[in-house]
Computed example of a mutant assay.
Amino acid sequence: MPQTSRTAASGIDPDRSAVSFKTRLANWLPRLVLAPSFLAILIGVYVFIAWTIWISFSSSSMLPRYDFIGLDQYVRLWNTPRWHTAVINLFLFTFLFLAITIALGLLMAILLDQNVRAEGALRTIYLYPMALSFIVTGTAWKWVLNPDLGIEKVVQSWGWENFAFDWITRPDFAIYCVVIAAVWQSTGFAMAIFLAGLRGIDNSIIKAAQIEGASLPRIYMSIIVPLLRPAFLSVIVLLSYISIKSFDLVLALTNTGPGGSTEVPSTFMFAYTFQRNQMGVGAASAIMMLMTVAAIIIPYLYSELREDANGH
């Protein structure tokens, strides 16, 4: 009996079988490709988060222990004056960093949106600092702010001998030096997001408002800026995340000095975990940072998901 007859007699359609195999392969291929990355993230992120949570409830010191002592490590953490300094610095740094970066980024985006000449070159110049690591930024600004090498020395050499800009050596002003360096690096990033949002707004809205007699500043304040709400949310979330993990910038610029005045939660966690051999307290501080990030991310995700649901 011919092969086709035997296949037909058995009730198997070879073309349909081949199509079914290709369909199953097409459905499973993306999953197989993403499986290693998913596994790496599962182990490298979520498993270690769970491990850190367990360590924060244990009596771990130099080495991890797997007993359970309840909230003792969190009580020790919040009874540590250095942690209070870190939390205060984080809120002060985050507020100033967000406010100044958003204001400057929005202003730069509006100016570039006026079809200025050499826009491409200006955009590249503004974005260049974002290509640098925080280590490089911190080291560079450490030189710039050094009274013996940087701005103070240069201005005094011009004849203003009484000029002083020694914030980096003063415990009550050093945290503002961290703000200056962070704003310098991240303003171009905020500008790029705002500029993309501005370019997505229909020009007919502006033209209609101009026909009604509205001035350009009034148009931006009353119409354009409210339409940039998604851009504002993205900038706030991303900059807040940057501020919380500003470990390398602080370490390179001030090394938490002078006198621990620029301590932030990330440097506190590193110091207590790897230098002071108090792993339990360090893990507790890491979980507090994780909760802070979650408090920022979850409302943002909820807002985005709700908008998607309403849009559909």
Results as ranks from 00 to 15, higher is better:
residue 1 M to K: 08
residue 2 P to L: 12
residue 2 P to T: 15
residue 4 T to H: 07
residue 6 R to M: 14
residue 6 R to A: 15
residue 9 A to F: 09
residue 9 A to G: 12
residue 9 A to R: 08
residue 11 G to Y: 03
residue 12 I to E: 07
residue 12 I to P: 03
residue 14 P to W: 13
residue 20 S to M: 12
residue 21 F to N: 11
residue 24 R to Y: 14
residue 28 W to D: 07
residue 32 L to Q: 07
residue 34 L to I: 15
residue 35 A to T: 11
residue 36 P to Q: 10
residue 38 F to C: 13
residue 40 A to S: 09
residue 41 I to E: 03
residue 44 G to H: 05
residue 46 Y to L: 06
residue 46 Y to W: 12
residue 51 W to I: 12
residue 55 I to Q: 03
residue 58 S to K: 03
residue 58 S to D: 09
residue 59 S to K: 05
residue 60 S to E: 02
residue 62 M to Y: 09
residue 68 F to R: 08
residue 69 I to V: 15
residue 70 G to L: 11
residue 70 G to I: 11
residue 74 Y to I: 00
residue 74 Y to C: 06
residue 82 R to Y: 05
residue 86 A to D: 03
residue 87 V to D: 01
residue 92 L to M: 09
residue 93 F to Y: 12
residue 97 F to D: 01
residue 98 L to D: 00
residue 100 I to T: 09
residue 101 T to H: 06
residue 101 T to K: 05
residue 104 L to M: 14
residue 110 I to L: 13
residue 112 L to D: 01
residue 113 D to T: 00
residue 113 D to M: 00
residue 113 D to V: 00
residue 116 V to C: 01
residue 119 E to W: 02
residue 120 G to M: 09
residue 123 R to N: 13
residue 124 T to E: 06
residue 125 I to Y: 08
residue 127 L to A: 11
residue 131 A to V: 15
residue 132 L to W: 07
residue 133 S to A: 11
residue 135 I to F: 12
residue 135 I to N: 12
residue 137 T to Q: 07
residue 138 G to F: 04
residue 140 A to D: 00
residue 144 V to Q: 01
residue 148 D to A: 14
residue 150 G to S: 13
residue 150 G to I: 11
residue 152 E to Q: 15
residue 153 K to G: 05
residue 163 F to V: 08
residue 164 A to D: 06
residue 165 F to I: 01
residue 166 D to S: 14
residue 167 W to P: 03
residue 168 I to V: 09
residue 169 T to K: 06
residue 171 P to M: 10
residue 171 P to A: 11
residue 172 D to R: 10
residue 176 Y to K: 06
residue 177 C to W: 00
residue 179 V to P: 01
residue 180 I to H: 06
residue 182 A to Y: 03
residue 185 Q to K: 15
residue 188 G to S: 08
residue 189 F to Y: 13
residue 189 F to E: 07
residue 190 A to L: 02
residue 194 F to I: 01
residue 195 L to I: 02
residue 196 A to E: 14
residue 202 D to F: 12
residue 203 N to W: 10
residue 204 S to N: 11
residue 206 I to E: 10
residue 210 Q to E: 15
residue 213 G to Q: 02
residue 214 A to F: 12
residue 218 R to Y: 13
residue 219 I to Y: 01
residue 220 Y to W: 07
residue 221 M to H: 13
residue 222 S to Y: 10
residue 223 I to W: 02
residue 223 I to Q: 03
residue 225 V to N: 12
residue 225 V to Q: 13
residue 229 R to Q: 11
residue 229 R to S: 13
residue 230 P to M: 05
residue 231 A to I: 00
residue 231 A to S: 15
residue 236 I to S: 05
residue 237 V to E: 06
residue 243 S to V: 01
residue 246 S to W: 01
residue 249 L to M: 10
residue 249 L to D: 01
residue 254 T to Q: 07
residue 255 N to Q: 15
residue 260 G to A: 05
residue 261 S to V: 05
residue 264 V to M: 15
residue 269 M to Q: 09
residue 271 A to K: 12
residue 272 Y to E: 12
residue 274 F to N: 14
residue 275 Q to A: 04
residue 278 Q to S: 06
residue 280 G to P: 04
residue 285 S to G: 14
residue 292 T to I: 10
residue 296 I to E: 02
residue 298 I to T: 11
residue 298 I to W: 14
residue 300 Y to K: 02
residue 303 S to D: 06
residue 305 L to F: 14
residue 305 L to P: 00
residue 306 R to C: 04
residue 307 E to M: 07
residue 311 G to N: 09
residue 312 H to M: 14
